[in-house]
Design a binder for these strands. Structure first.
Length: 766
DNA sequence: AGCACGCCGACT
DNA sequence: GTCGGCGTGCTC
């Protein structure tokens, strides 16, 4: 980012101040190549221009908006342009700017991109007409878009108009229709006399809604007029407030009694500040978050609760409203909030909201007085994943740690099985005493070595027993579709993807009968490559030896569902990403993320090994098995061909510590986070451009402590057909790895779209 | 020689 | 994002 400029500005002392300060401005232009630029601060703005101030400045003659990220700047004596205006509504606290700077470095994303995420959502820029020229079609106060202005006046006249101060770049905030809300004050003394029936009706209607009701809605419900309402206001029994239409803010309505069990831990973390890992069970997550929230608010701060996805955010909001003592405000914050998001942002910034619950974007929202950050389900990779290109490529864990450090708050990470990168002592996160339940299901391990079958009699009998006694069974499978591969019974050949050579998985064709078998036992369906998503027609005979004795092998959701339904003679439900059928049945098969969302009497895992092999890490496998045990009330049954696998056994014993003890040394040896950092660079474009970016720009710039792999061609990217390439950078120091990765990103940005680069810092699996 | 067009770096 | 410089290649 920018250098340590505040000190140098101070050193220059009063002489420099007399000349006017130099502000370093990061311009909000989606460009990789533009570093922060220096501008003179005119005397009348010195008071307002601080780090975080949003300013308008000229660039190539045109006005642009930028954020002040520092002071001082280059001393090369060039004539600097002046800061034109300060835009208060877009200004950020300096702490948030620091955080954005850190996030930009850590993710190798351009600073303006990150700053954009921290700015009020939904704001658009327009020119406000200040002093119109006589021949202009606009009057003073009008809002004119940049394109409209250029179309009418032409580029030269537009620039002159801006320089002369006839127009000024200013943000247009999304329209917020205000609606009148009635909220009961809860003041007993203010209750109306017995005979004032209308007033009493109004209050009774409000009792059900602690967070209040729109006044119009209240009057409609009760049939009362404006008179009784005003009477109540005069008495002080209720107050009327203007709230933005569709405000997402809720008022809590619990008692807080359930939260005392977690007080001690929360107190310890909040008093000391810094980062804390707290091993608490998944189900208790909301209660722990609530306990931390209550304490943070008591200590006069706000709390930020970060959840991995939108569904989880909404669910947490509901729980917090139910659990927290009445009188606190809770608001969600995430991308799919639409217009309400701007409202939540303002409420958080002004301090109106006590608890802001959101996805990782919320980690950059300015808060009036941040006391604590609570990250729920810390190891979940959805805390980072951003399929969309414009999202933040930083895990919420990292943002929370950085923000807590910058703002002097406490960051608390919840999970029964924290990520190794966080739990490693070197991460700097301290540990609170685990609060895990004693309940653990009885464990059954079926050794599948030497068996051809995919479902053991133990598993089938177990399911049958459970169903007979009225219980429900969740069956957890790694893959969707009918089977993980198709092989030849005669020669053993496995049908593989022609472009990337990975085994092709069998999916049921939507148009054919799912699970329908052809005469010779080969299931009908489409073959799909798990690596490059290529689709192939299912062959009638073995591509290697021509035999027609093909069979589907490997456990996948639909295949397991069909086999179980047949073996048990009952309907079996299916929950996979896109595909949900009869979810309410006694037995449901699906992927862990969907099946393990709820509790079951028994959980069965027909192929536990699948979670430890392939592209899935030991860590993920451990977590799936552990979560499966958490989710089963009575019994957990796993089938495996490696019954001695240490991580599997540790998970089944609920022994997180021994899992950590065996895994950390390897992690350290390989230099994975927190012992080192990796940048995964994916490039899409012609080979020449890739080589130019990597060999002539990146490699010469590499320091001695960052190592780059060769460029590996990827079979074919997800963006159909175009050739992708990949390389990894490794080093001990994060900034060194990230800035090397940023060289490639900038280089790709300079090719005008010929080369596209995607940087992933410290991906979970490489 | 004169001009259109596209690439590339500067802009503070 | 916007501009202008410069090189390439085509035309008068």
């Amino acid at each position: 980012m920018t250098g340590p400029t505040t000190t140098s500005a101070r050193r220059r002392g009063p002489t420099h101040r007399e000349q006017g300060r130099v502000a370093r401005v990061s311009l909000l232009i989606p460009s990789h190549s533009l570093p922060p630029l220096d501008y003179l601060v005119p005397g009348h703005l010195t008071g307002e221009v601080r780090v975080g101030a949003a300013v308008t400045v000229p660039l190539s003659g045109y006005g642009r908006v930028g954020i002040v990220v520092g002071f001082g700047g280059s001393a090369d004596g060039r004539a600097l342009e002046k800061v034109r205006t300060v835009v208060r509504s877009l200004s950020l606290p300096s702490g948030v700017v620091k955080l954005c700077g850190w996030a930009s470095m850590a993710s190798a994303q351009p600073l303006p991109t990150v700053l954009q995420v921290a700015l009020p959502p939904g704001t658009r820029l327009a020119y406000e007409v200040i002093r119109p020229a006589p021949d202009w079609p606009w009057k003073a106060g009008d809002q004119v878009t940049r394109t409209e202005l250029r179309r009418t006046l032409g580029p030269a006249a537009s620039r002159t108009a801006e320089v002369e101060g006839r127009i000024s770049l200013s943000p247009v905030h999304p329209e917020r229709r205000m609606v009148e809300w009635a909220v009961a004050s809860g003041d007993e003394d203010a209750s109306p006399p017995q005979r004032a029936t209308r007033q009493r009706e109004l209050l009774r209607a409000l009792e059900e809604h602690a967070s209040g009701l729109p006044a119009r809605e209240l009057l409609r419900m009760t049939g009362a007029g404006r008179g009784p309402l005003n009477q109540l206001v005069r008495r002080g029994a209720l107050r009327l407030t203007a709230r933005p239409d569709g405000a997402p803010i809720s008022y809590t309505r619990g008692s807080g009694v359930d939260l005392d069990g977690y007080r001690e831990g929360a107190e310890r973390a909040l008093k000391a500040g810094g980062s804390w890992v707290w091993r608490t069970s998944t189900d208790e997550g909301p209660v722990v978050a609530a306990a931390i929230a209550r304490l943070a608010v008591r200590r006069g701060g706000q709390i930020l609760v970060l959840a991995p996805d939108v569904g989880c955010v909404d669910w947490l909001v509901r729980d917090l409203v139910r659990l927290l003592p009445a009188g606190l405000t809770v608001s969600p914050y995430h991308g799919s909030l639409g217009r309400e998001r701007a409202t939540a942002y303002e409420a958080a910034r002004s301090g109106e909201v006590d608890v802001l619950v959101g996805t990782r974007t919320a980690a950059l929202v300015p808060l009036a007085s941040l006391g604590a950050i609570c990250v729920v389900d810390e190891p979940n990779e959805d805390h980072r994943a951003s399929r969309d290109h414009k999202g933040l490529h930083v895990h919420a864990r990292e943002l929370a740690m950085a923000r807590a450090r910058i703002e002097g708050a406490a960051a608390i990470f919840l999970s029964p099985t924290p990520s190794l990168r966080l739990y490693a002592p070197e991460s700097g996160a301290r540990r609170l005493s685990p609060r895990l339940p004693v309940r653990w299901p009885s464990i059954g391990v079926v050794d599948m070595r030497g068996t051809g079958a995919s479902l053991s009699s133990s598993l089938i009998d177990g399911c049958r027993e459970m169903v007979r006694s009225g219980g429900r069974v969740g069956v957890v499978v790694n893959r969707r579709g009918l089977a993980t591969s198709v092989s030849c019974r005669h020669c053993g050949h496995v049908v593989c993807c022609p472009s990337c050579d990975r085994p092709l998985a069998l999916r049921s064709e939507p148009e054919t009968d799912p699970g329908a078998a052809s005469n010779n036992g080969v299931p009908k369906g489409a073959l799909v490559c798990s690596g490059c998503w290529r689709r192939e027609k299912s062959p009638d005979s073995c591509p290697a030896c021509g035999s027609e004795r093909l069979r589907a092998v490997g456990l996948a959701a639909e295949g397991v569902r069909d086999s179980l339904a047949e073996a048990l003679g009952v309907e079996v439900g299916l929950v996979a990403a896109e595909n949900r059928e009869s979810e309410g049945t006694r037995i449901v098969v699906g992927t862990p993320r969907l099946v393990l969302r709820e509790g079951w009497d028994m959980v069965a895992i027909p192929d536990a090994d699948a979670f430890f092999s392939g592209y899935l890490s030991t860590e993920k496998g451990f977590r799936v098995i552990y979560r499966a045990a958490e989710a089963s009330r009575e019994r957990l049954l796993v089938q495996t061909r490696s019954p001695g696998h240490p991580a599997l056994l540790a998970a089944l014993r609920s022994d997180y510590e021994s899992f950590v003890a065996t895994e950390l040394p390897g992690r350290q040896a390989l230099g994975y986070t927190p012992y080192g950092h990796v940048a995964e660079i994916s490039l899409t474009g012609p080979e020449g451009e890739v080589r130019r970016a990597v060999e002539s720009k990146l490699r010469p710039a590499l320091g001695p402590d960052v190592k780059a792999t060769e460029i590996m061609p990827l079979p074919s990217g997800p963006d159909g057909g175009r050739i992708s390439w990949r390389l990894l950078l490794r080093g001990r120091v994060r900034t060194e790895v990230a800035s090397a990765a940023a060289i490639v990103a900038r280089s790709a940005a300079g090719t005008g779209g010929k080369l596209r680069a995607r940087i992933e810092m410290d991906p979970e699996e490489v």
